[in-house]
Design a protein around this nucleic acid. Structure first.
Lengths: 237, 237
DNA sequence: TACTGGACGATTGTCATACGTTCGGTCATG
DNA sequence: CATGACCGAACGTATGACAATCGTCCAGTA
């Protein structure tokens, strides 16, 4: 793949070409972020006019972004009423966690089966970072980010972009609960780290079944808390 | 479910409310259909102006639809160049089939585990229909539709809408190959039916493992042909 | 008082138009 | 033949407009 004597053109292209980031995608990122960090609460209406004032872009752009968010499953578009931030029912939450279980179990297997050694190193590094953040009591946001990084490494190593796409979408939707579940129980982050340690060690031992099992255990634990936390506060509907 | 003495309000609502089907969603359906039936070939550019002339709707609407198609993974939007019908590389095809394998194996298990008897009946009926269509040599489109019906029953019975959403998206993307793989080999449809018969019988025997295995076998067989067919004609890229 | 009916404002759905920017190809020129 | 200026096509974004719809408030009536 590499041509040693020549400068890496690909890298140049990615650096130069991207100065012109489509305005639309920037807005998309901002709004997605706002939803996932609960700056927009589930159930909240996203009125076009307000988004326009908020972002400074035209209605055209806003509307296109809302379509994308809808297709990603982060907002629901009610005819003649507009976009509303998705709020999950307990049932839907269970369904999502069930899917995560299946996909992440596969992710673990895939990673063990075919990740190069460099990916193992990266995984250990990302996990250590997660440990650090949790130990020194980072904010929920910090923890989530560190965790996302771990997943990122896993997805890279698994080398299946379709899996990445599906899981990313799933994670985004589950995140609408995860913030709640992580912050609800002070002991959860540490527990979560312990679960991931199981995973990392199984992976390093190249034990696919153990890794898969550890991942399933992790998702199940998250699911238990996530769903419990959601049944309790009775999110109106 | 039925209240014999009273008119069915739900039905009325679904009949009346839907007269005002958002124009946008109609266009979305039409374009999606056109892509999945290869009326738009993979790699083909979708020029906004042409779509406008073709559908009679405004550019605004067309663009919003294109955003949704992009988020669904059916078109790719190249900055400053516009929408292009996705064309899968052999690698991506393999990734998609791998995912299908995982998700459909789970689908089979879920169905066995929790589908009500009525779903079993529906499954048998849908499968019989598929048999019929294949036996009397229906068109590729007929076969695909009959098969989609089988999957629909399976997804209904599994009762996980998130799984349905993920698999639907996957199927849509795989369909960009499937038409080719089904029509390439005259014996394939019959073989495919045989594989599904395994599945149906395993399901009827309430044997989750067998059902899952049958499903995996089915997907693998489809994958083998689909990928082979795609490496052969060298789809330009 | 409670209910019906209608007016009104807010917001979405859709359209038409406009303009700067970028990409790709043509064509003249050295 | 290669280079660079030129030009048209198409996209990205913005603006303004108007009908249709939904929710709400208010007045009139039983």
């Amino acid at each position: 793949m590499d041509e040693p004597g020549r400068p890496d053109v690909t890298d140049l292209a990615s650096r130069i070409g991207r100065v012109a980031a489509p305005l639309r995608s920037q807005v998309l990122d901002v709004l997605r972020e706002a939803i996932l960090t609960m700056r927009f609460a589930p159930g909240q209406r996203l009125v076009e006019r307000e988004l326009i004032d908020m972002t400074g872009v035209s209605r055209t752009t806003i509307r296109e972004v809302l379509r994308e968010l809808a297709a990603e499953g982060l907002v629901r578009t009610i005819p003649q009423k507009g976009a509303v931030v998705v709020s999950l029912s307990a049932e839907e939450a269970e369904e999502l966690y069930e899917l995560r279980e299946v996909l992440e179990a596969h992710l673990a297997r895939r990673f063990v089966a075919q990740a190069p050694d460099s990916a193992l190193v990266a995984l250990r590094r990302a996990f250590t970072r997660l440990e650090d953040v949790v130990e020194r009591g980072g904010t929920t946001l910090d923890i989530v980010q560190a965790k996302d990084l771990v997943y990122d490494v896993l997805l890279d190593g698994a080398g299946n972009s379709a899996l990445r796409a599906s899981l990313s979408q799933l994670h985004a939707r589950v995140t609408l609960l995860r913030v709640g579940s992580l912050s609800s129980d002070p002991g959860r982050p540490a527990q979560s780290v312990a679960e991931m340690r199981e995973l990392v060690e199984a992976v390093e031992a190249r034990d696919a079944s153990a890794a898969s099992a550890a991942m399933v255990a992790h998702v199940r634990a998250a699911a238990r808390l996530g769903i419990a936390a959601m049944r309790a506060p009775a999110t109106a509907r």
